[in-house]
């Protein structure tokens, strides 16, 4: 297993991207009106992008082997199942 050391520059770029996306989240939510669910979907989309960046670069998942990626995706997968089935129940009961 290689021990990949993430350089300072990469960490700074990661932080800058996250701060930029936070600003985008605030500005879109406050000043762009896309209707009740439009803003929710947009904000969640940006949050998912931010989470992916944290998972990939700060948490080194980009440099990990397959095993830890599978574990992380299992957590997210079961969460999606939970959300999906709950919504099926809510909308089609």
């Amino acid at each position: 297993m290689s021990h990949h050391i993430v350089p300072l520059k990469t960490n700074i770029i990661t932080l800058s991207t996250l701060v930029f996306l936070t600003a985008v989240t605030v500005l879109t939510a406050k000043y762009i009106h896309l209707g009740e669910n439009g803003n929710l979907v947009l904000a969640m989309f940006i949050a998912c992008v931010k989470a992916t960046i944290v998972f990939g670069w700060f948490m080194h998942l980009k440099y990990e082997g397959i095993m830890n990626r599978v574990i992380a995706l299992c957590g997210l997968g079961f969460l999606l199942l939970f959300v999906g089935l709950s919504y099926l129940d809510l909308f089609f009961r």
Binding site: M67, N68, I71, A72, C74, G75, L76, F78, L79, F82, V83, S86, Y87, L90
Partner: peptide, 25 residues
């Protein structure tokens, strides 16, 4: 050791996930 921490992270995602599902419903 790191794999153990990742397993713990998966449980964290699912624990908060329950609250988020409640929020959305």
């Amino acid at each position: 050791g790191k794999q153990g921490v990742w397993l713990f992270m998966a449980t964290e995602i699912m624990m908060f996930g329950g609250l988020f599902v409640g929020y959305f419903l």
